[in-house]
Design a binder for these strands. Structure first.
Lengths: 126, 126
DNA sequence: CTTATTGTACTAGGTGATTAATACAATAAG
DNA sequence: CTTATTGTATTAATCACCTAGTACAATAAG
């Protein structure tokens, strides 16, 4: 089934984020082989060129490396993966706090909001 | 000085968000008059048409109303502003939690991360 | 060796976003 | 009344993104 592309941002950038997320979460383990460009494109429901472009971006960041005819592989570099995870959460948290402050919320309110949200979801155990 | 446009999302959508943020935070008080389309475009560093498009979007959501030649005004509807603030924070928090969960973080880790981030910033009082 | 698969490159076309340059009616301000 | 300002509409041109289709060299698999 095709992946979901929400905002108006370029699809290839959204794909990059999705792939990064899958790498950071371990869904694509270190050293594992990625599906081929064509298969990934089919899976995502986009043109192979678009997927190729997204993968080229990942290449530049060193998270994956391509071996001409054997396929693409996730880096074995454990520290790179730790860095990825850390930098991603850093960015996500910073952006989150900045956004809520931007609409006039205090730090206490921000923390409370997160706590409430998590707790309210845990209550929904029917 | 021109506004900052980060991601690859369409500028007019980013402008809509910026304006919503300014309304939600009270930077643009209820009933107050917005700068003209041309002035806002100049301030944001975009073409007047782009600003016009963003403002038309805001119009549809009922947050502002235009009076032909007198200018544009923020709605006086206090409840609409409360709703805006609430829905914006709802969306921001939901997206935030989903993102961190997406890279494999537990709810406890998420809460800790926010707490740490806020506390670490408070330490920086030279 | 033969063949299928892989990453990669290239051209072309369509679409939407953005800019540019005007133009106009309504009206607040003088 | 006259004038400047306002929101709004229109047309055209440019650019990035996306899709489509094709092609090629390298190599793993048979």
């Amino acid at each position: 089934m095709a992946w979901k592309f929400n905002d108006g941002a370029p699809i290839y950038l959204q794909i990059v984020n999705t792939l990064k997320r899958n790498i950071a979460s371990g869904a694509y383990p270190p050293g594992s082989r990625l599906p081929s460009v064509r298969d990934l494109a089919l899976e995502a429901g986009v043109n192979p060129n678009t997927m190729q472009r997204a993968l080229s971006e990942l290449e530049r960041s060193g998270l994956v490396n391509s071996q001409r005819t054997a396929g693409r592989f996730i880096t074995e570099d454990a520290s790179a993966l730790l860095d990825l995870r850390k930098s991603m959460s850093e960015e996500i948290v910073s952006e989150f706090i900045a956004r809520l402050r931007g609409i006039g919320m205090s730090d206490e309110q921000i923390l409370d909001t997160v706590r409430d949200k998590i707790n309210s979801e845990h209550k929904e155990e029917t």
